[in-house]
Structure formats: C-alpha cells, structure tokens
Nucleic acid binder design. Structure first.
Lengths: 246, 246
DNA sequence: TAGTGGTCTAGACCACACG
DNA sequence: GTGTGGTCTAGACCACTAC
C-alpha cells in the first residue's frame, strides 16, 4: 500500500517519521515510552531497514526520540529548567533551587593559559598581560549534565579564589569575596555540538546548544570575568525582562 | 589504510566527518566552497557511498555544510545578525539597518481566531473574550527568511491597525499609534524545525530554531500583545545587557 | 541466547542542475 | 547527456542489553 510511485511528493522516510511524530505529539507514545523496534517498523510500514532508520533519524534530529543501543528507541522527556537573566542577578544554584532542581558542578580544567587577543579586549586588560586563568566545568542539574562553561579569570582573582572556584559557581564566589557584579553583557545564540562537546554533555553529534557569551562588570564599569556557557538546548531556556528605563 | 579493524573506537563515518570538519575549520574549504563530490570522497577514503553520505550528514547536522541536489555540497556561510533585547527597545528594522542589513516582512495569515486559554491568560483578557487576531509572518533579512513570527493581538488593536500590521512590524505600528511599550517579558529557548517550519524557512528538517516567546506591556503594566518568534539559529542571535538596578 | 540498535557494503533508480 | 545528490533495497556483521 505504500507503493513508491504514490509518494512523488514526499519520500517514504518522511511520511513515516511524520506519522510517528504525530503519534508522539498526540500522546500515543508518551515521554519515556519505547517505540516499536526497527524490525517491527519494517513490517508495519513494509519498507527496508535503512528507510526505517532514516525515519528514526528524522525524529532524533527533531529531538523527539533518543535511541539506545541494545535497548530500543524511546520518546524523549521534555523537561527544561529556566535560567533567569533578570535584575537583580540571581545565582544559578538559587535559580535552580527555586525550580526544585539540584545543581552541582564538575571542574574539568583550571589552569593559567596564554591570554588571547579576544579575551584581553573583552576584559580590557593591559596590553602587556600575558596569562589568564581558564576554567572549564560541567554544570549538572539533577545529576544530568546541562552545560559546559568556559570562564576566563584575570590572574589576581584566579589565584586568590582558585580553590573556591573549583567547587562552586563563579558569581557567588566573587560576591562572597566582595566583588559585586553590577552589569552583565550577554549574547545568546545557538550552535551545534561538536563531537567533543557531544561526548561531554551526553548528547548526539550536532545537537543544538544555547551559547551564552558574557562579560561581567563590577563597580565603575570594570570588566571582571568573561566566558561562555554552552547549554543543552533540550534542558535549558533563558528568561529576560526588559523594562523601559528612559 | 582505513581498514575497519583499526577503528574499534571510532566509526568510519565519524572519522571522515571529523577530518572534513577540521579542514573546513582550518580554511582548506572556505565558506561557499564546494566539497569533493560523493563519488570523489568514496575514492578518496575508500568507503562506500552510504558511509560518505553518513559523514556528510554529520557535517550537515553540525551546520557546517549544506547540500544542493544536482549541484554539490557547499560550506555554509556563517553570517549572523544580532537582535538587541536591550533598553530602550530598538525596533527590529532599525536594529538590522544599523548592521547594514535590509529587512522586510511577508504576512502569511491575519485572521480572527478563537482565543486559547494560554493566550488569554498571558494578555490578562476578560474571561468572556472569545476571539483574538492572529498574525503569522515571515521576517526576511537581505531577502532571506530568518524568522517566523506568530503574534496575538486583541480585537480592538487588531481591527484598528489591520492594514498597517500586514505591511510593517508590530512594535513600530503600535508606537506610531500612541501605544507605548513599557516592558517586555521574554523567554528564549531552542527547538527543532518541524517539517512545516523547515519548508517555510528553507532549512533542513530538525534544524535548530531560537524561540522567543514574548509578552509586551504598555503603561500601567497592561499586556498588549504576545506571541513567539521562531528564528533560524544559523542567522540570528540575541544580545542582552543586564544592569543591577537595586 | 535472543533481541536491539550501529555500521557498512554493492547496487539500483530517480530528480535536479548545467552545459 | 553527464554529473550531482536523494531515495531505497537486501544483506551482512558487530556491539550492547537483558534474560
């Protein structure tokens, strides 16, 4: 019945994935449910395995399902936490706690590295500055990795708070040491997970990431730290409130 | 040399896509350049076509290349425009003009529809309200579709400015008619293009979209309009400035 | 051991772009 | 027409999970 000649307009794999997509959205398959196996789908739609796999790949690229080797294909859970970018600045862990979510960090890297031109400019460092601290860490909520953060910290701060920074988040650390964050400039965009990042955040290659590139300023408009947070787009969203200040 | 037994850790398609990825990032292939054809890659890496295609699919899902039937596979241009969410509110077209980019809109749909509970709540409408205007439009920059916007406009506004709204953007229209936007609440997240949206924005199925869900308020904290903008993640990013107001 | 998804092959036909 | 990517098949082997 699914003769190839009838589907001049729509490829088979698309027809199948659209149908499965509808069933997922309609609730025939609920989050956590297992889809029929590739074998069953081959029989059900009377197509070859590669076409079934292509259809499943469509669903995966739409973030609807996740496949697990040896187990099956499952409908993804759709639970996101919200990171508030409102004023006043709310610390990440407080933000999560308010949503009933636990958070922790796992420091991957904390070292003095050569300062790049770009970072030097963002932090308005003297032109003879040669080094800076760089921290890479994984941020987890409810034990699941949600974000990879890379922060650049000028030497004096990085040295003073090294221990603290490796076990807690950066804004609270600065705050509790008398460095008040007065302003944050951020850009939000979306990229795709490289192979390396996909491994670190346990997501498929090419999965969408929300990128938050930020520069934080303390009193007197002096930049303190900058960096970027790559968040799993299936786990995090940002909220913003803009008020006309005139 | 690319014997299967050597690559226990890494599948062939990944090894190939990683190598091509590196060459793209290194500049061997520049934006706009054509990659070797599938046939050439089959010979070059001594693998089957399906493996080459899988490697190219990896690159596509990472947003690095785009394939065009009958022509070839090309390295994607990486040009993004920035939408400022700072204060004061900058209109989209001014924002684009400042970046040397032309912008236009294409109205797809402008009709009175039944009011949903969700929208009614966002706009704080009287509980007996039954209808609302809904506008769907494509937003183009430099003639390329970048976003799909869906806006909900209460009856009195929607009727009064119907003509204007179909040819120009909503904030400027409201502003020029004496409706000042004092506050905007927005959440930013990322989803995947459904088949329908992928067709409208000319992107692959499942491509990442930046979703901006907003409610705009006028004087006295009264909500005026709400809606959501689905932007192509490869073409748009948002910028935000947060100032401690205390 | 049985069932699942992951990788890979060789081969076929189709649709589209370009000269 | 030639070359390109898009779709699809049948079949094989592997790695992982669960029993």
């Amino acid at each position: 019945m699914t003769s190839k000649n009838l589907t001049h307009t729509e490829p088979l794999h698309l027809a199948i994935s659209e149908q499965l997509c509808e069933q997922i959205l309609n609730g025939k398959y609920e989050p956590g449910d297992q889809l029929p196996s590739e074998n069953q789908l081959m029989l059900q739609f009377n197509v070859s395995r590669i076409t079934v796999r292509r259809a499943l790949a469509n669903l995966t690229s739409q973030g609807l399902v996740i496949s697990q080797r040896g187990k099956g294909v499952f409908v993804k859970e759709r639970k996101k936490v919200t990171r508030s970018l409102s004023n006043p600045l709310i610390f990440f862990d407080e933000d999560m706690a308010r949503q009933g979510v636990s958070s922790s960090i796992c420091s991957l890297f904390y070292e003095k590295i050569a300062l790049s031109y770009k970072v030097g400019k963002k932090l308005d460092l003297p032109s003879d500055t040669q080094y800076i601290y760089c921290q890479k860490k994984i941020i987890l909520t409810d034990q699941i990795p949600v974000a990879l953060d890379i922060t650049y910290i000028p030497l004096e701060l990085g040295k003073a708070f090294a221990d603290q920074l490796q076990s807690s988040l950066i804004y609270p650390t600065l705050d509790s040491n008398g460095v008040s964050i007065e302003k944050v400039e951020a850009t939000l965009e979306c990229t795709h997970a490289t192979y390396e990042v996909s491994q670190q955040l346990d997501i498929p290659l090419g999965a969408p990431l929300l990128v938050n590139q930020y520069v934080a300023y303390t009193t007197g408009g002096r930049p303190v730290i900058c960096g970027e947070t790559l968040s799993r787009a299936d786990r995090l969203c940002y909220s913003v409130v803009l008020t006309k200040t005139v």
